[in-house]
Amino acid sequence: MYEGAVQELIDELGRLPGVGPKSAQRLAFHILEADGEDMARLVTAITTVKERVKFCTICGNVAEEERCAICRDPRRDPSMICVVEESKDVIAVERTRSFRGRYHVLGGAINPIAGVGPDQLRIRELLARLSDDQVQEIIIATDPNLEGEATATYLVRMLRTIGIPVTRLASGLPVGGDLEYADEVTLGRAFEGRRVMT
């Protein structure tokens, strides 16, 4: 236990995701030892992001304007919507350069243990986007974990009644992986997602 400001800084840093007590302590002492100008830039960057960045009114992605750059881009295909959990997932999909449609960021995944149900996600906003008959396919790209699967199942059941085709990203074996190290669920998904070789 440190006294005063140092302990307060460690406590606040420890509240960040993925930062445990030891990491928080290391970060706090790095901040203490770092150049004042570097830390002033860090403070400015944090303040600026909190003041300027908001969420896109259409898709829920991070944006500095009312609409994000993807929703403003007329070259994007409005007939496909890729549903993701978080804004960082948009970046992951964009890096593939395989998808030229639009996105919908849910703001998380269904997780009853953490108190997150469908009403806490941006599902109503997704349904509102489907009312103009422009969307021809919804791609569900939630994480392949328990919460992501629960969210995908919920969305499929809800969207099935609308009549728009709903697809799910394939999952299975990673490139460069070995079968002997794959768990049963991953290997099972790989079998389900197999395709004809031409």
Score class of each variant (00 low, 15 high):
188 G>E: 05
178 D>Q: 08
60 G>V: 11
120 Q>Y: 05
198 T>P: 14
45 A>V: 00
157 R>I: 00
38 D>F: 03
17 P>G: 10
74 P>W: 14
71 C>W: 13
178 D>N: 12
191 F>L: 15
159 L>D: 11
70 I>Y: 15
150 A>H: 08
46 I>F: 15
46 I>K: 00
28 A>V: 05
56 C>F: 14
77 D>F: 15
83 V>H: 09
121 L>V: 09
44 T>W: 13
26 R>W: 09
174 P>K: 07
164 I>T: 05
125 E>W: 04
17 P>R: 05
167 T>D: 02
74 P>H: 13
78 P>W: 09
165 P>R: 09
2 Y>D: 07
52 R>D: 10
60 G>E: 09
77 D>R: 11
138 I>C: 10
106 L>Y: 05
7 Q>P: 12
10 I>W: 07
111 N>K: 03
138 I>E: 05
120 Q>L: 13
36 G>W: 00
196 V>K: 06
37 E>Q: 13
67 R>Q: 14
143 D>H: 13
74 P>C: 09
87 S>A: 14
160 R>G: 09
101 G>Q: 02
19 V>M: 06
140 I>F: 12
55 F>G: 00
128 A>L: 12
62 V>C: 01
103 Y>L: 02
169 L>D: 03
190 A>M: 11
167 T>S: 15
49 V>C: 12
36 G>L: 01
33 E>S: 12
22 K>P: 01
115 G>K: 08
159 L>S: 11
118 P>R: 03
2 Y>P: 11
174 P>G: 10
17 P>V: 04
27 L>P: 03
161 T>A: 14
145 N>P: 00
12 E>I: 03
173 L>C: 09
66 E>L: 13
98 S>Q: 13
52 R>G: 00
38 D>A: 11
46 I>W: 01
134 Q>W: 00
195 R>Q: 14
136 Q>W: 06
124 R>Y: 07
74 P>A: 14
100 R>L: 06
23 S>P: 00
76 R>P: 10
92 A>H: 05
52 R>M: 11
174 P>W: 05
52 R>P: 00
55 F>Q: 11
83 V>P: 11
182 A>L: 09
21 P>I: 00
149 E>Q: 14
138 I>D: 04
66 E>P: 08
123 I>G: 12
54 K>Q: 13
175 V>I: 15
131 S>T: 13
106 L>M: 07
69 A>K: 04
173 L>K: 04
117 G>K: 07
170 A>F: 12
99 F>Y: 15
134 Q>L: 14
103 Y>P: 05
186 T>D: 07
84 V>I: 08
3 E>I: 04
2 Y>V: 06
92 A>W: 09
132 D>V: 12
92 A>F: 11
35 D>F: 04
89 D>G: 04
138 I>Y: 10
163 G>K: 01
12 E>G: 01
35 D>R: 05
104 H>K: 04
133 D>T: 03
140 I>A: 02
151 T>A: 11
151 T>H: 07
156 V>E: 14
97 R>K: 11
135 V>K: 07
173 L>Q: 02
37 E>R: 10
176 G>Q: 06
168 R>H: 13
111 N>Q: 08
31 I>A: 01
163 G>P: 06
116 V>N: 03
122 R>P: 11
182 A>H: 04
70 I>R: 08
90 V>S: 09
137 E>W: 14
154 Y>G: 06
127 L>T: 10
